[in-house]
Write a protein that binds this DNA or RNA. Structure first.
Ligand code: MN
Ligand code: MN
Ligand code: ZN
Ligand code: ZN
Lengths: 156, 156
DNA sequence: TCCCTCGTTGCAAACTGTTCTCATTACGCT
DNA sequence: AGCGTAATGAGAACAGTTTGCAACGAGGGA
């Protein structure tokens, strides 16, 4: 039994927020851009990938996107606030889906194995706000990185 | 009129903390190491220099130390806890004299001109401690970086 | 539907910040 | 003063990221 095909008109889905944001800025939707954002959406928030990891994950699943394009796309997605960039000193910066549920979380990083846990704390956010206000700065973003050893790496 | 020369014995000053820490570890005091630490001590705490800046400051004042040695010395001084290393995403890491008066300060950085202000906030430190405890991690160091625009860069 | 334009891609080369290699120098112990 | 070995200088190597450029292709108009 064959499924009834949806009429061509209904294929014209409303463009995703990503697509419409792009369009309104004279930019274009491309398969590469779709693939990068989809990857983050599929794995969900709370995962922190480097550019290289994004590249190899796409490559492994048969999608080939050049590394240069991945860098360009990640930068774009950060500027468009779909992704958040973490500047962890070791081994390249990492990117994560910007979750609307946990917009202002911070990171606890095991410097040995790279395991990263997230946490939220309003005091931290307020500390950043207070400091910015105090010096007349306009706050953009505040990030607390806690460098530590996870239980596994802690005992030798 | 000639000044009376101090007797040779009095030249034997007690070694600095730096020098004795080095010695007790089989390491040696060198003119290069003296120059790098002295530079930080002369300019005082609250100044955040990149390796390149340390290099050019020394070069300008006629002291030549190779860039490789500067990197090696900075790493050493951080390990010996004379310096603190900041991982600010833009333009290389920076180093500052570790001040015993303000051991746990955080940084407010203008992402346009690089102006950096320091602030202290116990809530931040406690947030890091709490997060580490919560996940069973052993805390090493926590640093809050507030990215912002300074008043000057803020109005266009 | 075909076209044209101009934003985007892939590739390699360039770049930036940092570490490494290795021959040479020199600290510090006796 | 002589010796063993840690440290230095110079440049090559390196990792992560950006850029230049020719080819490509998304998507609005005819
Ligand atoms: Mn996160
Ligand atoms: Mn500081
Ligand atoms: Zn670990
Ligand atoms: Zn500024």
């Amino acid at each position: 039994m064959k499924l009834k095909l949806i009429s061509p008109a209904s294929y014209r889905t409303h463009p995703s927020p990503f697509e419409s944001d792009l369009r309104s800025d004279g930019k274009r939707m491309t398969p590469q851009r779709k693939k990068v954002l989809s990857l983050f959406e599929e794995i969900g928030s709370g995962i922190h990938l480097s550019a290289e990891e994004v590249h190899s994950k796409l490559t492994i699943s048969g999608e080939k996107v050049s590394l240069a394009t991945i860098y360009r796309t990640l930068r774009l997605l950060v500027k468009m606030t779909f992704l958040n960039e973490l500047d962890l000193s070791e081994g390249g910066n990492r990117f994560e889906l910007l979750s609307h549920d946990h917009p202002d979380h911070h990171h606890l990083i095991c410097i040995r194995c790279g395991r990263t846990e997230e946490f939220e704390n309003n005091n931290v956010i307020n500390a950043g706000k207070a400091a910015a206000k105090n010096f007349g700065f306009k706050l953009l973003e505040s990030s607390l990185n806690v460098r530590a050893l996870c239980p596994k790496c802690s005992n030798k």
